[in-house]
Design a protein around this nucleic acid. Structure first.
Lengths: 105, 105
DNA sequence: TATACCTATGTAGCATGCTACTTGACGAGC
DNA sequence: GCTCGTCAAGTAGCATGCTACATAGGTATA
């Protein structure tokens, strides 16, 4: 049957957004319209459950671009599996955020 | 400024579904994929806040169609205003559920 | 040099959402 | 007449989401 974690609608939306190239918190907030108090805790839980992995941007880059450093995420193999299952559960999600290869940075 | 209640993503999704003709709990569950424990309490709160109004179906109809009676909802004037504001906040919602004049019964 | 805005991440505490379960009537199958 | 499946609404208690706020460096501007 597959013992994958079941995601909430919001968690699935966030995972889909990361998968579609919105790979840090602020960009997910902007594209989804969800507030920071939703997005950051949700991303923590996704990482806690092994569905995404984070990596801080090098300070030198942030400094050069004159902004705070970003925490970049990528979807793990387990995350991809869970996301696919979630898209079956919430088919409307695919309409909301089309998959793309580009990164929205 | 407008003192309209701000809706959560889920509440807005449910309100939009009702507005699009999914006018009782079970049909909203089916079209959104959300579970009963989300949909029914959320609809109660929407009614509590005056955004929708409920009316039990006549028992004679339910009996004739050999199923449990349904609780039908309609979006109030206040609900329409709030929904419009919410669609501006969550533009992705309009993609998810297109507006229609038909009832999904 | 203070005030305001922008990017970016984060938290406390209350509101909302979700899992698992219940109720209850009907139909099918046996 | 028992068990299973379906439609429909509902709840308890825990998990998640959201508002309001904090932090912190940068730009702008007056």
């Amino acid at each position: 049957m597959g013992a994958e974690a079941k995601l909430s609608h919001t968690a699935a939306l966030i995972l889909r957004a990361i998968s579609a190239g919105y790979i840090y918190g602020f960009s997910v907030m902007e594209m989804t319209g969800l507030p920071s108090g939703t997005v950051y805790p949700a991303m923590r839980r996704l990482e806690r459950d092994g569905l995404i992995q984070s990596k801080w941007e090098a300070e030198t880059i942030a400094t050069a671009e004159q902004r705070p450093p970003r925490k970049y995420y990528k979807v793990t193999r387990a995350g991809k599996t869970t996301l696919e299952a979630s898209l079956k559960r919430y088919p409307l999600l695919e309409k909301m955020i089309p998959q793309s290869e580009e990164e929205h940075v």
